[in-house]
Write a protein that binds this DNA or RNA. Sequence first.
RNA 1: GCUGCUAUAGUGUAGUCCGGCCAAUCAUGUCGGCCUUUCACGCCGACGACUGGGGUUCGAAUCCCCAUAGCAGCACCA
Length: 486
Amino acid sequence: MITALSEKHEKKTGLPDLEGAEKGVVMRFAPNPSGPLHIGHARAAALNDAYVKQYGGRYILRIEDTDPKRVDPEAYATVQEDIRWLGLGITEVVTQSDRLPVYYDLCKQLIERGGAYVCTCDNEHFKELKQHKTACPCRSQPVEKSLELWQKMLDHGFKEGEASVRIRTDLNHPDPAMRDFPAFRILDSPPHPKVKAHVYPLMNFSVVADDHLLGVTHVIRGKDHIANTRRQRFIYDHFGWTVPVYRHYGRMGIEGVVLSTSQMRAGINEGTYSGWDDIRLGTLRALARRGILPEAVKNAMIAIGIGDVDISFSWDNLYAENKKLVDPTANRYFFVPDPVEARIEGAPAHTAHAMLHPSDAARGSRTLEFTGTALLPKAELVPGTAMLRLKDLFNVKIAWNGDTPSFSYGGDSLADARAAKAHIVQWLPAQATVPGTLLTQEGEIKGACEPAVRAELGKVVQFERVGFVKIDTVGVDGVRAYFTHK
RNA sequence: GCUGCUAUAGUGUAGUCCGGCCAAUCAUGUCGGCCUUUCACGCCGACGACUGGGGUUCGAAUCCCCAUAGCAGCACCA
C-alpha cells in the first residue's frame, strides 16, 4: 500500500520518457553546413545524444546540404570538429548531397502514386491561387505528363524557377502553408560545392526520405519545425510509411553573444572578430576557447530539457555547470592584475609554498621566492588600508603619505592579520613573474602571473581571487588567458 | 491577417495527461552566516512563482471558457 501511494510521486531524473523508445531509438542531428556549430545547435545535438544514450540505438549525423546557397565548403569539416569536441555518440554520418539519386527515385515513385505533380506555374501566380484554395492547371494533368516533365527537369529541360515538384495535399487546408508545398526545385547557380546537380530536393522531401530510409524513430527539433512536421506527414501518408515520434522544443533566446552565421562571417571578414572562436561569438569553439567544457554545455542543455515554451538561456546556469567540473581539477595560481611593485622594509627573504589545489594536498605546491620586493594588486591598495596579508607568506603593514603607500614587514602571525581584518591577497615575487594578459568579453586586463602557469597551456586554471581562466597562449611576451567565470 | 502552440520564483526546471499527498520540486541567482592563509569549493539559513478573470467541484497549479501576453509557421531555406 505504501508503494502504491508513493509511486505517483517518484522523482523523475533527467529528461522525460520518450514514447515508444523502450526497445531503443534511432535519432539524428541534422545541421546545415553553413558554418561552425553554436549554442543553439548544441541543444538539439545534446538532447538527441542524451536520449540515444538513455535508450540505446543509433545516432545519425546528417549533413543537410541541399541548398547550395547555404553551404560553406569548409563547414563540412568544421561541423565534424565541433561534434567531436562536444563528444556526441554519433554512429554514422550521412550527407544529403551524396544521395540525390535516392531522392530522385523516390520522387518518381511519388508521382506515380499520384502524391506529387510537376508544376510549371509561375511562383507568384501559384501563391495567388493557393491563397484562394484553387488548383493550378498542372495539378490535374495526368500522371504520365508529370512523369514526362519530371524527366525533363532532370534532363535540364527547364531553367531555374520554371518547374518544381509539388506534394499533393489538401487545397482546402485551413493553413495555407500546408497547401501543395514544393518538394523539388531547379537551381542554376550557385554550383553545389560537392556535387553536380540541377534539381534539388527541398528539406521537407529529403528529410522524410532519409528519416524513413535510415529508420529514424524519434525526432527532437525546434518548434520552428512544427509546420514542417505537419507537411511531412502528407508525404508519409502518400508512401504509407510509419511516422516517427516528434518532440518540438521552444525557442531559446541567447543574450550577450552573436549567433547569426552571416553576421559572424561579415564581422570576421571586416576584422571586427578575430575568427570563429572570437569570444564574443556564441560558437562552440568560442566557448571552448573561453574554457567551457563540452560536458558542461551538454549538462546545461539537458537541464533545460525539451519544453515547448520559449526560454531564455542563462549563462549563469552554464557557468555553474562548468564550475562543478572545473573546480575540482583546476590548479590554482597567483595572477596580480594591475601590479604595483612594493619594496617591503624589514622583511626576511622567504620561500612560500602554496598549494596547487586547496582540497588536494597530494597534488603538491608551487614555490615562490620572496627576496624583498613583491607585486601587489593595485585594487587592494586603497589609501588608508593599514595591513594586508600576502597569502602563504606574511603580513605587510602599510603607511600612507597621502596616496603614496610604503610597506614594511608585519610579522608572520595569521592571527594578527585576522584580528586586523586584513585582506588576504595574492602576490608575486617581483623578480620571478611572467607578464599575463587576461582577456574578458569586456576587454583586457594586464597583469603578472606565476611562471609555472606556462606549463598549463590549453588548460583551465584558477587565478586565485580572480576566477577561472583558460590559458590560451604562452609566448616570449608572456601568457594570454581567457576569463571563463568566477 | 490566417493557422497553430504555450503560459510555475531573476533564470532554468519538477508537478499538469489520471483534481486532494503542492501553503508547490530541484538547480541556479541574490543576501546573510559557518568553514577557509582565495572574494573558489563545501555546509547552514533567508528571499522568491502557479499570467488575469470567470466556471465545474466538497476540493483546482492541475479540468472548461474568456481575456492578456509570448512564440512558431504561412519561402522553389533548413
